[in-house]
Design a protein around this nucleic acid. Structure first.
Lengths: 201, 201
DNA sequence: ACCTGAACACCGTTCAAGT
DNA sequence: ACCTGAACACCGTTCAAGT
């Protein structure tokens, strides 16, 4: 069966191969020409679907936010009766997403995609991801377990904590780098507990 | 006065111009050739001082860690009698360093410099930076203000929090992006307070 | 020791030309 | 509409040659 001249599917194929190549090479060394070769098209074909390399990277970041949103939404539907458990699970899900897709995570948050170049779709995907986290905070607030009424600042603190830990782990900067996901989950759990209960005695 | 054939100073000049060019172009688009032109030497001269581009970036990341270490050490020497104030000040100093040098910060933590390629000097500079933060935690522990005895996990939580907030601000992902350093400091203070006092009521 | 210019193999991007 | 090959201006890196 002959391959159709009009590929028809190229955009999807480029995104899938793009994620694979991104994790292999990193955003900096991801080459459009290599990507085109992997997809079996000429090196200018991607320009039919993406204005330039930055635009491809933007689309890949969007894929990342969509994955993160899924992970958050899944967690937000579990343990709805235990807000403490929910927030720890969300933190762990966030961090696992980061360590399993380090280059995608880096692309999402590393300032490679300029905020000024965000497409509406990307902004929406990002908002979906954070809405999941916010919902978990709101669940806890309805249950009356939080000290503060300012849910935005609570969510920001929680988000900063898990996000920072993810980055530090990916950068390999922990004194004892966790060698397994179980170990990593334990670290994440301990850090989340400090935020829930406070450092002060 | 004629410029000496042996520049003598080139490494320093390249690092200084490198930081400037890094903030202007970002790590990805920082070009050795442009850097050489700015320094007034041929495009191969930098190879006398840096094995390759990665090695230059490593050196620039080291400069960043040294700046961060200075900021932490300065804070660790102030308000030694008030550990709560110290940790908030350290957090604010950390975040200000990040937003004032976003590309350097990104280079330090974005996974661009591979952990496996860390030079001893870079590791040492990074450790110095975190030692400052650890010292502040230890001060508080000696004063007996913390709930937990595990100072490493306390430091990791504090570090994750300020680091995550820095990254999110630099990525432009806060709902209301702070327009001034005063506003940013207020946000940082609020987030730090959540960690100190805990989210739970 | 330190610097240079030519050369090589890549890259992103554009564009006239093909189906 | 979608894809191609040639072309252009860049880039990192190497190397023989200069002082």
């Amino acid at each position: 069966m002959a391959k159709p001249y009009h590929h028809g599917n190229l955009r999807i194929v480029l995104l899938q191969a793009g994620v694979r190549l991104l994790e292999k090479r990193g955003a900096t060394h991801l080459s459009l020409r290599e990507l085109a070769k992997e997809a079996g098209v000429s090196h200018t074909a991607p320009y039919r679907h993406f204005k330039d390399k930055a635009s491809l990277l933007t689309a890949l970041a969007q894929v990342g936010y969509e994955r993160l949103a899924e992970a958050m939404e899944t967690t937000a539907c579990q343990f709805a009766d235990d807000p403490r458990q929910q927030i720890r699970d969300a933190g762990i899900a966030y961090i696992l997403m980061a360590v399993r897709n380090p280059q995608v995570f880096h692309l999402m948050f590393g300032g490679i995609v300029k905020t000024t170049e965000y497409t509406p779709e990307l902004s929406q995907a990002a908002q979906r991801a954070f809405a999941g986290l916010t919902k978990i905070i709101n669940n806890g607030q309805e249950a009356g377990i939080y000290r503060s009424q300012d849910s935005a600042s609570l969510a920001l603190a929680a988000w900063s904590l898990v996000h920072g830990l993810s980055t530090l782990v990916n950068a390999g900067l922990l004194q004892s780098s966790p060698s397994s996901e179980e170990q990593l989950s334990a670290i994440a759990d301990s850090v989340c507990n400090h935020l829930l209960c406070g450092m002060l005695g």
